[in-house]
Amino acid sequence: MAYVFDYAAIIPYAPLIAKGVGITVELTVVGGVLGVGLGIACAWARSLGPKWLRPPVSLYVEMIRNTPFLIQLFFIFFGLPSTGLQLGEMQAAILAMVINLGAYSCEIIRAGIEATPRGQFEAGASLAMTRIQTFRHVVLMPALQRIWPALTSQIVIVMFGSAVCSQIAVEDITFAAQFIQARTFRAFEVYILATILYLLLALLLRQVMRGLGSLMFPRRRVAR
């Protein structure tokens, strides 16, 4: 039996898909911004922070990097309520994404920070900069510029990971696709459409990150 494609069957569900795209974008943007923020804080703690702070941060990074996102998400959504922390599905999804991206981006940003030549710290100090100023202007910004492409790839990976959030009933693209599949049995059409949407979102995200990069790093500070 030859399969007949019927994309028209999906059309009535367009609003659901549009909502899904919105949720996926929201998850990615909120998770991305907060996750990179957490990553910067952890990278600082692991490379320049006080000694006592390093082991717990390393433990966090290793735990997250060596377990699947699905298990982290289920642990937060199903497991934490028994400790009294009740989260809605959207909050749980965003928390899981922030914790996940925080660990990965910590390692990426740390690589950038550790590539800073020692002389740069001394130069910052000799210009009477405070430690915070030195970190912000001399260490962090060039480090971010160095690892911007790697960070972009990681955020794209996290966006693909957000597809898993549909499993705790977050109504993202994958959720919409599964819903439509269950209603119409048009699995091939709807999943191809969802895949294309993810592909387009990934391309868009790369463009946005490139634009953001040239906005944040107008001058080439790092000699390559």
Partner: peptide, 11 residues
């Protein structure tokens, strides 16, 4: 590399 693994599984 440009699509989620979950979508490939579903497909």
């Amino acid at each position: 590399q440009g699509t989620p693994l979950l979508m490939q599984l579903f497909l």
